[in-house]
Design a protein around this nucleic acid. Structure first.
Lengths: 203, 203, 203, 203
DNA sequence: GATGAATGAGGTTTCATTCAT
DNA sequence: AATGAATGAAACCTCATTCAT
């Protein structure tokens, strides 16, 4: 957690630092990211960096929090609070849609999360033994869908959850290649859903 | 490309070095991986390392080649050479199956590829502007399937290709969590195919 | 020398600062002692510190002065002013006794002096080429004792002075190990004197 | 403990490094001593330093070992092995004499030991909870002397041990002020012994 | 006068790569 | 060809001191 000195900073400066950090961490794996580069980019002295943060990891963890927080903010609040009003495929569509929108509007945040996902050692330092959250989320959703009778009971939900997770990662790839595909966002989602619905729907 | 000196080495020594490299690169991101550790583990002098390879990157690139080569070796040769004898879903099943087997039997190779995928800077240094190979492979397969009439024409193949790629990544996750799932390998693949077939099949 | 601003401070605050400084300097060698730690402990801002003192050294020198002043305050005033009324061994006993009492009641001050003694570079910065004060003191005392006829003339006073100094350092060690020795303070001093008297007395 | 690489070095180079280390550690407290300065002085690259030693502390500990070893080498071997042939005051004289000679011939080593003695924190890191060896040595000697009937039974040995220790420290002071005193070494020792004998001897 | 953020020199340590044998 | 010591450029982090309010 950043020190108070950081939070006492004018918002503008805080942002400059966070922006610089995102720049650095989105283009370099954690150990390759340089504190000096962040400080330079943010226009502060290295010494100042260490008055705001315990160390490099401290800033990194904070960034992760911001990232999660931001990602959550993209989810339709009503769908979370009144889940029962929606059917399984609506919820799934919303899940993908929010993930997609988040990725689209925060493209630089993606690689950060990705790199973390792939550096097991680092991941443990930050989250300890936490299970993979992503798959858990889809698993719950699928269980809900099965209970609702929307999901084909012949399907093993644990496997399906993994697949949905994998596909959601694929989605973000479209962000990187923005423009190469002559479809608008909704069309992409629709296509995905079309595929998924057929794959999962009770027959 | 390794120097001739490397290829002149007794096979056994070459292997020791490659094994050591895999050990190191599968547990550390490229920049975190230490030449010294590899040399030590392989039982050679650091100086020797530089007589075999231009530098760390040289070995790394070579490893990637080996990895691809090995991965290809898992594919059923007959299916490649006599593609026409097989229908789309058979080919897809084979693709997943070979990927799954490869991952299962070479678990240490997975993280290496993963890490590379996520370090864009590194990726470019190695493959330049190359497209994503994985998606390309599935795209071709899907086009074949469409021509065959097996794939629903309403589906955008580029998107489907991405999804299949994403799902194939998910598959490898099962390797990491080996044992947690009370299904044998075939059952996992079957489940996946069941899902995918329904998703893609022409109705 | 501290700035006027320091002396204008309310006594209570001055003391808080001095206490904090003693805490820090008694537990860390000069260069290891941190200005920030002192300020924090004293409950003042670092900036304030530099309004009271030129720099870290300034405070340190001042501390040394206080230390000497305090040490002197432990000496029986009458013995200094009317030295002639006392014989050599009475004076010596008083010297040790006062040193002992001082050490006993100001245990934290001891290590500060010790560390200074051993950091020649620092010592010079503070006292320049000054002779060792301690030995000088005992030398004078011994000369007085010799003139009085109390001290064995066969003894080289310069050497004896050094020895008495060394022994007085030993005394302070008892402070650190308070309780380990089942003798009260007076008994310790008596033992020392018994030893010293026999060593020095004219036969 | 230094790495093998250090011991594989030509003796001449090892010595250059040790000399440089002594230079630096004898003029600066541990934390103030700079690895860079040692490397420079020894004419090696900083990187090399770290191929010879784990870190700064590693070299420092090694230096302490050398110091102790060297100090021990000054003691008359016969007196250790055939203690019974010598009486208490002969042994004491030898103890002081060897300490004196050692100090005289290795003046730069003294401050290193001194500084260590006064940096409790450092001392513990190196020796753990070890008691003060110096006092122990004299205590044993005194017990021997008492058993022999050479030492006045009225004297508390624990106190006497401390005093002898303190005096031995004083001895080394003469080294620093070499030349200021118009006595040869033996005379100094004789004076000390004269003093001590009278102080301790059974009456 | 009081505050505490800002600064940057400087210290330790790591490691890819070169060099000398 | 093989070795492993030598090198030095960074990287992280600390902290005395200055500065702006």
């Amino acid at each position: 957690m950043p020190k108070d000195t950081f939070f006492n900073l004018p918002k503008e400066k805080q942002e400059r630092i966070i922006e610089a950090a995102i720049d650095e961490f989105s283009t370099h794996p954690f150990h390759q990211a340089r504190v000096t580069a962040i400080a330079e980019q943010a226009g502060i002295a290295v010494g100042s960096f260490y008055q705001y943060f315990e160390d490099k990891m401290d800033l990194y963890k904070y960034l992760m929090e911001l990232l999660v927080e931001k990602k959550i903010s993209y989810i339709n609040r009503d769908m979370i609070e009144n889940r029962d009003k929606y059917d399984f495929f609506q919820l799934l569509r919303e899940a993908y849609l929010s993930g997609f929108r988040f990725a689209k509007e925060n493209p630089r945040l993606l690689p950060i999360g990705m790199m973390l996902t792939n550096d097991k050692e680092l991941y443990q330092k930050i989250y300890g033994e936490h299970e993979n959250k992503g798959a858990d989320f889809f698993l719950q959703l699928l269980e809900y869908g099965k209970a609702q009778g929307a999901v084909d009971p012949a399907i093993d939900l644990r496997i399906a959850a993994k697949l949905l997770t994998g596909m959601s990662f694929s989605l973000t790839d479209f962000i990187y290649e923005d423009g190469k595909l002559d479809l608008d966002d909704m069309a992409i989602i629709d296509q995905m859903l079309y595929f998924v619905e057929n794959g999962l729907k009770k027959k």
